[in-house]
Design a protein around this nucleic acid. Structure first.
Lengths: 192, 192
DNA sequence: CAAAAACCATACGGAAGAGTATGGATTGCC
DNA sequence: GGCAATCCATACTCTTCCGTATGGTTTTTG
């Protein structure tokens, strides 16, 4: 339940705050990112925070940038190593489906698209992922326009799934049924 | 810009507050639902509000219930009159696509799934819509399990599309391109 | 080992927003 | 017209949370 249950008696760095912030965002959303709450959770007081960061916004921006760059090399980096265009999309679907944990922050950020700070980040990230999907569909044999629309459809399905499952707890789909769903997605969305 | 630019000098009812609340939710999200802000917008003060409602939560609940019941007879009611099962799904897709206005509240509520008050409402609404889609796919010829998964996929695509277009303003898709996207959805998701 | 830098606690000030108390204004009704 | 009921304004209190000021404590370093 408690992140810092063992009293890590080392002093904190800016990175510690950013990681804690991302953790909190993933669990309770951007709106819950309050400095005093974070401080309590880290076992210190505000005095510490305002040494490392000039303001609350600064923390948010730092955390968002950290998350964006992590996702850049991790999420997309792995997939790009699958060179066979025919295996690429199914592999992508299956991996994303079974590593939902890193997508928690993304789901939380999706719900914070009114905060002006997160909009540009999400715009960049979504844009890159869309382009990735589009070229993948092209390599799978779809003509340009089809590939773009299929990418839109796929990405929308991904985003919607995150919403309907993390945040809303719809009839909590179980594991094997979930696998069946993923295979169904592959069968309907990926051209044979 | 201003909703009540003409000083409607009639006194307010609870319904007025609920409608104004829904309007505000659609534009700025649930988080922006503050009673003093609403009061300013309606040209009155808090004193009025707390006569009609016991608390801020009460207003939210009333507004949500109003929205839920409106959607019940409007959104689903119309579609159920299309008796031909083969025409049903394409018609549904096209109508939903071209009447995005009533879906603004839904999109806003989707981003507020951390508020405990909206979760049950969204759970009910989503559940009903899912069931509607599932039976529609069954009537279109899909076996039970397939129909359920296809409904999940469709609904996720719908939800994701709302997110990516209303709130995030991705490369603002234009009108004819949007129509092409809808037809692409129909072609890929609805069995021939 | 002392001085400087890094890190943190305590105690403020101030803004925003929920909710209460109370009296005044307006409207429907007899 | 006058009396209730309804509706609203004003003026508070209380809480939460951001940010500042200031001084203390721990590390680092020359």
């Amino acid at each position: 339940m408690n992140v810092s249950s063992k009293p890590e008696r080392t002093r904190l760095s800016a990175e510690d705050w950013e990681l804690a912030a991302l953790h909190l965002i993933a669990e309770q959303g951007v709106g819950a990112l309050a400095v005093e709450a974070l401080a309590r959770q880290l076992g210190v007081t505000k005095g510490s925070f305002y040494w490392h960061f000039r303001t609350r916004e600064a923390l948010l921006n730092a955390a968002l940038e950290r998350w964006e760059q992590y996702g850049e090399r991790e999420v997309l980096g792995q997939i790009e190593q699958i060179t066979d265009p025919r295996k690429r999309l199914p592999e992508l679907f299956r991996r994303v489906a079974h590593e939902l944990q890193p997508h928690r922050v993304y789901a939380a950020l999706l719900k914070a698209l009114d905060h002006p700070q997160v909009v540009p980040v999400m715009a960049r990230v979504s844009q890159r992922r869309m382009e990735f999907l589009t070229t993948a569909y092209r390599e799978a044999g779809l003509p340009a326009q089809e590939a773009l629309n299929r990418a839109r459809l796929t990405y929308a399905a991904y985003v919607g799934f995150l919403q309907l499952n993390f945040t809303l707890g719809l009839p909590r789909i179980n594991h094997e049924e979930f696998d069946a769903y993923v295979e169904h997605m592959i069968a309907t969305l990926i051209p044979a």
